[in-house]
Design a protein around this nucleic acid. Structure first.
Length: 923
RNA sequence: GCCUCCGUAGCUCAGGGGUAGAGCGCUCCCUUGGUAAGGGCGAGGUCAUGAGUUCAAAUCUCAUCGGAGGCUCCA
């Protein structure tokens, strides 16, 4: 063995061999324990980016490790292939979505292969194929038949830019999460999934080992609040106005009501005198975007409807207002206002000069709380007052029935038929239909409004290919008559399914992607489910991860898992709770950010206006590259907003406004540059094409080899945190691979070795095994690799000192290569072969940790004086307390400190798991 | 405003009541027939700040400051 390490040759060679020998095929084997490792499937955008590598290669390393530990591992891959980008490509570039998507998949599949991952490609699933979406449609139909899917009217989020409705989860701060454009609320008839039926079960994370933040986000998203529903009636006409409150104990303090401007009753109850003002206000708020309405610290505005309601608890006549601080989308869209005990109502009452009545007397206060003395609402604990028969009830900080006052009032409301206990959720039903083409068809038809589902034997409803993409903003299905016209009276649904529906069940399709009879094979499901470990980004916390949990629970309840349960029972596995949750362990990787940089130095040319430069030319240059005779501004960018940059010019700050048509020159970014690209030179940011700071995995593989890239990604980041890209650091893992290669290439030493040295290297090897195990167990890939680097250094040193004989060398190398196999699969396989071991290292067993071998024999006894280390003594690892104290007291440090006196106290701390024993002497 | 996580070497990160650690980077030396490289020696840290508990705190508690993420007129 004499050649140098040529990553590319090695990698291509083994990727082919693995393919040919099918070592990654995973098959049901009831005699072996299973492990279903799943990593989130990519959207086929056309190029695999470094983020995919960062998510997938560590997951692959862990799956490989599980396999070497004896598990039968399923680690599949596929494509989440429906969605808007394909449709937008069709419109803007005149490529059919099928073509665009499939060519992207072809390309990405090759890129995925270059990672050297153990994906079982025989199980690949692609959500936009009829074979796949047949079952998305079938599930939809089952949901409909079981009352989970329904068509209903609701105020929905409409995206003008995407020309479709969106689920609440896809709207962030009033903007569409994809394009960042504002959405508007519209009343529309749409398809929904009744996810709210599962709200309570979705709050239960009992059997899940998921990151705390994800559980919290889902909990917040579901937003369960306990309280009561109470119906108020209008004074005239007796129109019922239902409200939800978490504080029924403050009902007697409700001195007015507020409806959301969109509330149905607004038009009905408004009096003639108030109509003009009310209509003007409704119009004004309708023109506001959700974003404006959600601004904090906004002045409370509203108008009086002229109507009054009767507070059912005390028959008081209270005015009904409308105000935009009440949201139509939460609760009933109407509130009872209790200004004394709710800050928003308080502000509104003060702004509109409405009555404030205290009904909770603060616990620690002697005198009665007076409204005119209040600077803000009181929402603390206290005693109910001004509340008729309820007076004296104790209201604590607790929510719901745990608060005695609330419990008592609810009982009374129910007994007197004025209201009832109620739970409200922030979560709404999942809006599942989209007015887009590139999605799974919805298998519904309409016969003069009567809904029918397409017969099972006619599934799937196939998405027609011969469609025209016209920039009308409408889905081509709506003007494709052969598709939507079933016959003269029957019309087909032209909306398609949200792509999140397709990805809610893909883990099931991997089980049997080619099965045409059922969505998934019962025995495969019985063996592999649930997913044991799921890895992917945290950005899916309240979308995909909530939807797929919901989906699984519905499938369980409508009996889709019954065949699988039967197989489990037959095989002696307990199906109880096996289908309650889709993925048991979840771990999120962080994000790889763009490289960290100093602010760039720029030359700005333009004219000075009022102390500010209006620049028509900005060029990024080196810090010492000022051309002779340059008379503009030169400095480091320290800040940038929109088109204004702030320059630090040798300590003096200058403002530069970049004119709209200014020439921008950034040598590091090819092509035409724009103002936005100046920004990324300032701070660490997400990688994106527009910022010009993307890193191409293909180029990295070319330059360093896939193994080095894999190891760099695992070593240089805390996987669950992510961090800034720094290609220079790839040298670390690269050096590790090179060194291991050279140690292996140099072959077994021709020296006899030293027994102590050999024992020492064995000990270090077993200590390394323990750390690598823990690292992989805990997704701490960086520590697992750092420890192997340390071991490599120790081995190198021992070899140099001629301490290792051939036999030990062989044993150590055999284990060392197996240890590195999950991380650097190609080089490990090559060295494994070269050292004459049997193919394949990836089918070999994982090195067994031997605690006896890992144990140190001699350790340093640390002598502490008053807790401060003052000396060490070499002792046996299992030293007894008496002997340790004796040695410590006799030590030079102790003698010096004690100066002949007796110690006040001595403490012996035995050494455990790697730490040295200590004696603390207090003088 | 609320919730969660996090502040350890220049950088990226381990560790965690009992001597402060790794990789990269850096200094200096050696090698120059493993060579767009290799080897060796070394420097670098009041473990964010302040208080408390303890024989002993980087580690536990509390407060403060700073960072990241999430939620937010939620009735």
């Amino acid at each position: 063995m004499s050649e140098n390490y040529q990553p590319h040759q090695v990698e291509v060679k083994w990727q082919q061999k693995w393919d040919e020998t099918q070592i990654y095929r995973s098959q049901v084997d009831w005699d072996r324990p299973k492990h279903y490792a799943l990593t989130m499937l990519p959207y086929p955008s056309g190029d695999l980016h470094i983020g995919h590598w960062f998510a997938m290669t560590p997951s692959d390393a862990r799956a490989r490790w599980m396999r070497m530990r004896g598990y039968n591992v399923l680690f599949p891959m596929g494509f989440d292939a429906f969605g808007l980008p394909a449709e937008q490509a069709a419109i803007s570039r005149n490529i059919h979505p099928w073509k665009w998507t499939y060519s992207n998949i072809e390309r990405m599949r090759e890129q995925l292969r270059s990672m050297g991952s153990m994906f079982d490609w025989e199980r690949e699933a692609i959500s936009c194929t009829p074979e796949y979406y047949k079952w998305s449609e079938w599930f939809f139909k089952k949901f409909y038949e079981n009352g989970v899917a329904y068509r209903g009217s609701a105020l929905v989020n409409w995206s003008e830019s995407l020309q479709t409705v969106l689920a609440n989860e896809q709207v962030i701060d009033g903007r569409d999460e994809r394009t960042g454009q504002p959405v508007v609320h519209k009343m529309m008839e749409q398809w929904f999934f009744a996810i709210t039926k599962y709200a309570d079960e979705l709050l239960d994370f009992d059997i899940l080992d998921w990151p705390e933040p994800i559980k919290i986000m889902q909990t917040n998203w579901i937003g369960r609040s306990e309280g009561a529903r109470v119906t108020f009636r209008t004074e005239l006409g007796g129109h019922p106005i239902e409200i939800f409150t978490t504080r029924p104990d403050t009902l007697w303090g409700s001195t007015f009501m507020v409806l959301a401007p969109e509330h149905d009753l607004v038009g009905v109850i408004t009096t003639e005198e108030a109509r003009a003002a009310v209509e003007a206000y409704v119009q004004q708020t309708a023109g506001e975007t959700e974003i404006e309405r959600m601004l904090e610290d906004r002045e409370k505005t509203g108008v009086f409807t002229g109507a009054y309601a009767i507070n059912p608890v005390n028959d008081e006549r209270i005015p009904i207002w409308i105000a935009d601080y009440v949201m139509i989308t939460y609760g009933t869209g109407a509130i009872m206002a209790v200004p004394a005990h709710d800050q928003r109502d308080f502000e509104f009452a003060r702004a509109q000069d409405l009555q404030i009545r205290v009904v909770i007397q603060p616990a620690e206060m002697e005198e009665l709380l007076q409204p005119e003395d209040m600077a803000e609402a009181y929402d603390g604990p206290g005693t109910m007052v001004n509340s008729d028969a309820m007076d004296g009830s104790v209201s604590t900080k607790d929510k719901g029935r745990a608060n005695p006052a609330i419990g008592r009032v609810i009982d009374w409301l129910e007994a007197t038929d004025k209201g009832e206990e109620s739970v409200n959720y922030r979560l709404h039903d999942w809006l599942i239909s989209r007015q887009r083409y590139w999605g799974s068809p919805i298998p519904a038809t309409y016969d003069n409004g009567a809904i029918a589902m397409v017969a099972d034997e006619d599934l799937p409803v196939v998405l027609p290919e011969d469609v025209d993409f016209m920039p009308t903003g409408r889905s081509p299905l709506t003007y494709h008559e052969p598709f939507f016209k079933v016959n003269d009276s029957v019309r087909r649904e032209t909306d398609t399914l949200d792509t999140f529906m397709c990805s809610s069940w893909y883990q099931l399709r991997y089980l049997s992607p080619d099965n045409v009879e059922v969505p998934f094979d019962a025995e495969e499901a019985a063996y592999w489910l649930p997913v044991d470990v799921y890895t992917g980004g945290a950005e899916h916390a309240v979308m995909h991860l909530l939807y797929t949990r919901f989906f699984t629970k519905v499938l369980r309840d409508i009996g889709v898992f019954e065949a699988a349960s039967a197989v489990m029972r037959q095989k002696g596995r307990d199906p109880e709770r096996a289908f309650d949750e889709p993925m048991i362990v979840l771990r999120n990787q962080g994000q790889v950010l763009g490289a960290e940089r100093q602010g760039d130095y720029v030359l700005c040319s333009g004219r000075l206006v009022g102390g500010k430069m209006l620049a028509h030319r900005v060029e990024v240059v080196g810090w010492n590259e000022v051309p002779a005779g340059f008379d503009g501004y030169f400095g480091e960018i320290v800040h940038r907003t929109e088109n204004v940059i702030r320059l630090d010019m040798a300590g003096v700050t200058q403002l530069v406004e970049i004119l709209p048509d200014a020439e921008i020159i950034i040598p590091a970014i090819a092509g035409e540059n724009n103002v936005n690209q100046l920004r990324h030179h300032l701070e660490i940011q997400r990688m994106s094409k527009s910022k010009g700071n993307v890193v191409s995995p293909d180029e990295l593989v070319e330059k360093y080899g896939a193994d080095a890239v894999r190891c760099y990604l695992m070593f240089n980041f805390d996987w669950q945190k992510g961090g800034p890209w720094n290609e220079n650091n790839i040298k670390g893992p690269q050096g590790w691979l090179h060194d291991v290669w050279e140690i292996a290439r140099d072959g077994a030493p021709k020296v006899e070795g030293d027994p102590d040295g050999e024992r020492d290297i064995e000990r270090k090897l077993h200590q390394t095994i323990a750390v690598v195990n823990r690292g992989l167990e805990e997704f701490s890939f960086n520590t697992a690799i750092a420890e192997q680097m340390k071991f490599k250094n120790a081995l190198k040193a021992a070899l140099r000192e001629r301490q290792i004989g051939p036999e030990t060398w062989n044993g150590v190398m055999n284990q060392l290569i197996r240890l590195m196999a999950p991380f650097a699969p190609h080089i490990a396989e090559e060295l494994w072969e070269r050292l004459g071991f049997e193919y394949s290292v990836h089918l070999a067993s994982w090195p067994a940790y031997d605690a006896d071998k890992a144990r140190e024999e001699q350790v340093e006894l640390v002598v502490l004086i008053n807790g401060k280390p003052r000396g060490t003594i070499e002792v046996a690892v299992d030293i007894e307390r008496e002997r340790a104290l004796e040695l410590a007291l006799a030590s030079e440090a102790a003698q010096r400190s004690l100066a002949g006196k007796a110690p006040r106290r001595t403490i012996f701390i035995p050494g455990r798991n790697g730490s040295d024993p200590k004696v603390n002497i207090v003088v």
